[in-house]
Computed example of a mutant assay.
Amino acid sequence: MTTHLNQPREVERLVNGMPTSDGAGVKLLRVLTQDLQRRLDPFLMLDYFHSDDPGDYLAGFPDHPHRGFETVTYMLAGRMRHRDNAGNEGLLGPGGVQWMTAGRGIVHSELPEQEDGLMQGFQLWLNLPGRNKMTTPAYRDIPADEIPVVTREDGVTVKVIAGEALGVAGAVSRPDTEPLYLDVQLPAGTRFEQPLPAGFNAFVYVYEGQAQVGGRAQPVAARQMAVLETREERDGVRVAAGDAPVRLLLIAGKPLRESIAQWGPFVMNSREEVIQAVEDFNAGKF
Rank of each mutant, 00 (worst) to 15 (best):
F192W: 14
F192K: 15
F192T: 01
F192P: 06
F192Q: 12
F192A: 05
E193A: 09
E193H: 10
E193N: 09
E193P: 05
E193F: 06
Q194R: 12
Q194P: 07
Q194K: 14
P195F: 06
L196P: 03
L196C: 03
L196H: 07
L196S: 04
P197M: 01
A198K: 14
A198Y: 14
G199L: 12
G199Q: 15
G199S: 13
F200Y: 14
F200R: 13
N201A: 13
N201I: 02
N201Y: 03
N201S: 12
A202E: 12
A202Q: 14
A202H: 09
A202V: 06
F203N: 01
F203E: 05
F203R: 03
V204S: 02
V204P: 03
V204I: 05
V204T: 02
Y205G: 00
Y205D: 01
Y205C: 00
Y207A: 00
Y207K: 02
Y207E: 01
Y207N: 02
E208W: 07
E208H: 11
E208K: 15
G209I: 08
G209C: 09
G209W: 11
Q210Y: 10
Q210L: 08
A211Q: 14
A211D: 10
A211S: 10
A211T: 03
A211P: 08
Q212P: 08
Q212K: 15
Q212L: 13
V213S: 12
G214S: 14
G214P: 14
G215F: 06
G215Q: 10
G215M: 09
G215P: 09
R216N: 13
R216I: 06
R216G: 12
R216W: 11
R216A: 11
R216V: 07
R216Q: 13
A217C: 11
A217I: 08
A217S: 15
Q218N: 14
Q218F: 12
Q218H: 15
Q218P: 10
Q218S: 14
P219F: 05
P219L: 03
P219C: 02
V220M: 05
V220R: 08
V220H: 03
V220N: 04
V220A: 01
A221T: 01
A221M: 05
A221S: 06
A222K: 02
A222N: 00
R223L: 05
R223E: 07
Q224N: 07
Q224I: 03
Q224P: 04
Q224F: 06
M225T: 00
M225E: 00
A226W: 09
A226S: 06
A226T: 02
V227T: 02
V227H: 03
L228R: 05
L228V: 00
L228W: 03
L228I: 00
E229S: 12
E229N: 10
E229H: 12
E229G: 11
E229R: 15
T230S: 14
T230V: 13
R231Q: 11
R231S: 08
R231G: 04
E232C: 05
E232A: 13
E232V: 10
E232L: 10
E232W: 08
E233C: 06
E233F: 07
E233A: 11
E233Y: 09
E233H: 13
E233T: 11
R234G: 00
R234Q: 07
R234K: 10
R234N: 05
R234S: 03
R234W: 01
R234V: 00
R234I: 00
